[in-house]
């Protein structure tokens, strides 16, 4: 099942391995932390901080992979590996934000469900 923003095989494996209660706690932590990572990314882009830009994308990629948010992880990986866009071009950031919003919404449903 890889159609939605979250690969449920990955998510369920996480739940099985760490326990339902812990998985909920971990998802909540990610939901809390993710906006900060996006903010780091945007700030780094605006300030021309290539290292910070790459690191924020790296962090998002790593967490996205943990929860099975495959397309989010792939987008973040592209940003991590790519050059920082010139003139503060937000296209990449906006695409990432959309993918993140979708992943967060599904994850929110999963922990509520």
């Amino acid at each position: 099942m890889t159609n939605g923003p979250i690969d449920l095989d990955v998510y369920n494996e996480l739940k099985d391995a760490t326990g339902d209660k812990f998985a909920v706690e971990l998802v909540s932590t990610f939901l809390d932390e993710a906006p900060g990572m996006m903010a780091d990314l945007t700030t780094a882009l605006a300030g021309g901080d290539a290292d910070g830009y790459r690191r924020a994308a790296h962090s998002l990629k790593s967490n996205a992979a943990t929860f099975g948010a495959c397309s989010l992880a792939e987008l973040a990986r592209k940003i991590e590996l790519g050059d920082m866009p010139e003139d503060g071009d937000l296209t990449g950031v906006n695409t990432l934000q959309t993918a993140l919003d979708m992943a967060r919404s599904t994850l929110q449903d999963l922990i509520n469900g």
């Binding site: 391995a17 760490t18 932590t29 932390e33 790593s62 967490n63 943990t66």
Partner: peptide, 16 residues
């Protein structure tokens, strides 16, 4: 690890 989710997950894994 600088990432909180990673820290929590790894500490849970090793504690288990």
């Amino acid at each position: 690890d600088d990432n909180k989710v990673n820290r929590l997950l790894l500490s849970r894994s090793v504690e288990m």
